[in-house]
Design a protein around this nucleic acid. Structure first.
Lengths: 148, 148
DNA sequence: ATGACTGCAAAGCCTTTGCACGCAA
DNA sequence: TTGCGTGCAAAGGCTTTGCAGTCAT
């Protein structure tokens, strides 16, 4: 994934936020910029940590509020990364996305993507009298490192 | 799904628990019996509620403890049914299982199953140098009832 | 100027843990 | 008899909410 794509996402997100009537606050922009640089799901804690590292002082509540707003307008996808902990990752405007294999031992997340898997999901969705907006696939087990 | 299958699961579960070295306590048995009767995922709250309805007095902590043990030996599958709330459903010894479409509006869960989806997941897992034990697919969107 | 945006601290909510008593084996 | 199993109440941990000050427009 190129840096160009990530930078593009920040602009895309800020534009969509503006279009949705949100103002361009400091906390909001900072969180968007952090998310733009992440390749896979990160927790609210990870984001707070990265913000601090970047010197931005953003309150915890703001992080959660921004994430909620971003999720609301489909700019980020929320998923459970470990018992009771949410992870967030950006949604690409083009629709490309990946899924995750999560290790039960160490919690490591291995992203993967597969065209035929997507096709199968699309077909099922199509048959379902349910207006599908998104989907997620999670494989749980033991990663290479922990199996050894 | 037949009642016979459900009854079978309770026996199966109690047997597997015994084999794992657990004693046959009242709370444990009661929770297993409730789970055996559920067709789809239920929350800890649902279980507590059903136990009360059945006249069994089981402490909240015991419900969670039993669920954790059942999950540990792969007798139940845990998933997130709504923000921060876990749902549990029994795992069939035969391996047959379903996935869920969850309505963002009302939270309703619509179960579905699809052979080609399973095949696609198996293939991906096979390619992954990851010891896959289970998987789950969640489709999110708007159900028929809420779209109207 | 006006109402959205933020940070801080407090509250919420589901879940887990500590502890003493009861029960299975 | 032994120590697992259980209920109750308290603690935990992530997330959300209330509120007053600040900033974008």
């Amino acid at each position: 994934m190129s840096t160009a794509t990530r930078t593009g996402w920040a602009e895309h997100a800020l534009g969509k936020l503006a279009a949705a009537g949100f103002r361009r606050g400091g906390a909001r922009t900072a969180v968007v910029e952090v998310l733009a640089d992440q390749g896979c799901a990160v927790t609210a804690f990870d984001i707070e940590d990265e913000l601090r590292r970047r010197g931005a002082s953003v309150g915890r509540a703001s992080v959660y509020r921004v994430l909620e707003q971003l999720e609301e307008i489909d700019l980020v996808h929320r998923l459970e990364v470990s018992r009771g902990v949410a992870g967030y990752e950006r949604v690409e405007p083009g629709g490309e996305h990946h899924h995750h294999a999560i290790c039960r031992e160490c919690g490591r997340m291995i992203p993967f993507e597969d065209a035929s898997l997507e096709r199968a999901i699309d077909k099922v969705s199509g048959r379902m009298s349910f207006d599908a907006a998104e989907h997620e696939v999670t494989i749980r087990g033991c990663c290479e490192r922990c199996s050894a």
